[in-house]
Amino acid sequence: MSVHKTIKRVTTSALRDMKARNEKISMLTSYDYSMARVLDEAGIDVILVGDSAANVFAGFETTLPITLDNMIYHAAAVSRGTKRAMVLADLPFGEYQGSVEKAYEAAVRMMKESGAHALKLEGGVEIIDNIKKIVQAGIPVCGHLGLTPQSIYKFGDFGVRAKEEAEAEKLRTDALALQEAGCFAVVLEKIPAKLAEEVSQSLEIPTIGIGAGNGCDGQVLVVNDMLGMTKDFKPKFLRQYTNIYDIISTATAEYVADVKSKNYPNENEQY
């Protein structure tokens, strides 16, 4: 008699428990079914359907052009590829920075149509009322502070944030405000490691770092960067675990050569 092992979905409470027992949280981005399935089966805790799809999937210079419809499409594909990982989806630029009502409607649409389990929104006290409304509707929200790519034109570059005390203090205040508003976690991007560790220790909710040192409760990377698929992007915080760009390039060149030489398909590869 076969025994089927039940796969338990990673939940917001599971992430909080991981922080409590000092177990680090693993997160990677994904934008499609096939990649999501691989990451899920490899044991990733959270898959972020990032608006970074605008950069690595669609080739835009910033994350600003991606739409809610685009994000729902990607998140739905990822959701269909997972059994264990929490699927966390970004709400795109322009959908939640304005009125509370518009933010709420965008959040509800994303949850209903994508199958995602939680949403990520960039910003602090400026959008706190919008976050409260979404959380009150029963939708889990993850905050995002530090370098917030949707605000790139305000910052002017992708440099380290909160190096000066005034911005660091605002980040501390924002982090506490997000926790108070009901966020279950907060991403800290490209800030000094010491500040990230301090904020992590001050919060009851988990922090997920990207370029924020090892004092956070978890880490996230863009999967294309981690796999070495984005050839020319090599910031200090990125560790490339393989070189998919060269692997795919070599395999493609071999395929082209085999087709041209009539080596593929051979007798065993046809009907």
Rank of each mutant, 00 (worst) to 15 (best):
G50N: 01
A257S: 14
G182V: 10
K231E: 12
G218Q: 04
G209P: 09
D246G: 07
N130V: 10
G115A: 02
A14P: 03
Y31G: 00
L39A: 00
K231Q: 11
Y73K: 08
R21C: 14
I139D: 03
Y96V: 01
K19V: 11
V222N: 03
L119S: 03
G215C: 12
Q270P: 00
K194W: 04
K236N: 13
K24D: 10
V256Q: 13
K262M: 06
L171K: 00
Y73L: 12
A14E: 14
S114V: 00
M18Q: 12
G50Q: 00
P206C: 08
Y104T: 14
A116Q: 01
F237G: 07
L176W: 10
E41D: 15
S34K: 12
S114L: 02
P149T: 05
A14M: 15
A53E: 00
L68A: 08
N214I: 11
I247H: 12
K112R: 15
H117V: 02
M110Q: 07
E61N: 08
E113K: 01
K154I: 14
G43E: 06
E105S: 14
K234S: 12
L88D: 04
Y264W: 13
I152N: 04
E41N: 13
I210H: 04
A168F: 07
L145Q: 07
G143M: 04
D90A: 00
D225V: 06
I127L: 01
L28C: 02
I72Y: 07
K154L: 14
V222E: 03
E61R: 11
C142S: 10
T173I: 09
I139E: 00
G138H: 01
L39S: 02
D45F: 07
A137M: 06
N214S: 14
K231I: 09
S52T: 09
V10D: 05
A196N: 08
V141P: 03
Q136V: 06
R9P: 07
V3T: 10
T242V: 10
E254T: 15
E267P: 04
M110T: 05
T148R: 07
G211C: 04
D246W: 10
M1G: 15
H74V: 03
V100W: 07
K5Q: 14
L68N: 05
E269D: 12
A193W: 12
A76I: 05
A162T: 11
Q97R: 10
L145I: 08
A251M: 13
F60T: 01
L227D: 04
K234V: 11
N263H: 13
V256L: 14
I247L: 15
A42H: 09
V56R: 03
H144V: 05
V256S: 09
K83W: 06
I25H: 06
V38P: 06
